[in-house]
Design a binder for these strands. Structure first.
Lengths: 225, 225
DNA sequence: TGTACATCAGTGAACGCGCGTTCACTGATGTAC
DNA sequence: TGTACATCAGTGAACGCGCGTTCACTGATGTAC
């Protein structure tokens, strides 16, 4: 990776990344509509036209931010999952069942997802907002089996959710006849809490009540499996 | 109500409503961002400045559309509920329990909500989108008891949901210790299906698969009560 | 029934704004010989 | 090691656009006497 040597050279050296960074910070503050190509260029200290050497148009810049946001969300979910991979062996207490562990992992996933929504509402809105076509799921054609690469960039929230649901099914916590399509349902349920708290009628409740709602929702989701 | 006599008079006669109508149709086609004051005026056949005799600014026009959209959603939910008010007395079959009836009513509510989302994605996005402050819940101060007026305009989706959840609690279908705050949770769960199918990664699934997801989600929600 | 006049609800032209995008250009970089 | 040159990644000025909003105005309406 070539790092920009000094800021005062004619050639920037890493303009593409710099623009994505600036656009991301715009989105962070103002959501999807705030991603303004000219503003991003301004923030980087470059002429607007320079951006066109790296993006065909504004939409591509927005898509780049979207990808970055989704990658960040994935990463946080993954790390939340990592923290729950081995059940803490509590002094003397009976080791929790596989089903219970899997439930806790699903819970952790939901927490991470909503934490991201509340921490980064602008990015969350952009990542899941109405703007533009959804980036296709298949970068190449179809992942061979499971994208086993560590921190594989394509491994989105969806893949993580699927994995944990599979664990639940394997542990017998989900009747098999209900397993199909359940990632959509579960995702939607968690997602709804995020959108309703950000933009809906629940936008004005305070943090503690919101947290209570989150817990309650995760309870209900798990109960509904 | 005074009705505009003829279209070719200098005074329009019902410009405010006409503008809201035009703005609504703009929103229907293009979502929140498509509500453009000048375009609405154009569509009505009036100069842009005329709108300022009826709205202080664009935002007020948008809010009017939002209210209209919410009213329409309420109405459809209410009518779906009406169709389920008296259980059909099936020939000879055992009359369903109160709990079962209430569950069916909750289901009907969810169906109506999502039907609106899928039929009118633009209006749905505007009604629950990130734009502007959420219209306050209390028109006066606080509704005296229950807004019993037929088709009361203020009776939003929220009130309907609350009513049905109360029925469920009364019928013993919800443990009392879980009742508090459940309208938020339930709403969020249903809402998430809508947003994820409209703008999220589920935007591209076909209608039948979408319907399957809807049913599955409503099952899960009811099971989780 | 008629007339003066205040009020209301339109017009049309203009304002400034910031945007996305294009264009001909130019300075820096790196490669071939 | 030096030099010609193609290529890359910037500049700066300009384009057209459509927007929200304002302004002085004017035509229609309705009320007082």
């Amino acid at each position: 990776v070539s790092v920009p040597k000094s800021a005062d050279t004619y050639h920037h050296g890493d303009l593409r990344n710099a623009l994505v960074g600036a656009a991301t910070s715009l989105a962070r503050d103002g959501g999807p509509d705030a991603v303004v190509l000219r503003a991003a260029a301004r923030q980087v200290g470059v002429s607007p036209a320079a951006a066109y050497h790296h993006f065909a148009n504004r939409e591509q810049l927005v898509q780049a931010v979207k990808q970055a946001a989704l990658a960040q969300l994935s990463e946080q979910m993954e790390s939340a999952l990592g923290a729950r991979s081995t059940p803490p062996r509590d002094r003397g207490r009976p080791r929790p069942s596989a089903a219970e562990v899997a439930r806790q992992r699903l819970r952790a996933l939901g927490h991470a997802y909503l934490q991201f929504a509340f921490d980064e509402p602008g990015l969350f809105r952009l990542a899941f907002g109405p703007r533009g076509p959804w980036p296709t799921d298949e970068p190449g054609d179809e992942p061979t089996d499971e994208p086993t690469g560590p921190h594989g960039d394509g491994a989105g929230p969806f893949v993580l959710l699927r994995r944990v649901l599979d664990e639940l099914a394997a542990a017998g916590a989900i009747p098999l006849e209900r397993r199909a399509g359940l990632e959509y349902v579960t995702w939607a349920q968690v997602h709804g809490v995020g959108t309703l708290c950000l933009d809906g009628p629940l936008a004005d409740i305070d943090a503690s009540e919101r947290q209570r709602t989150v817990e309650q929702a995760l309870d209900a989701i798990i109960r509904g499996l």
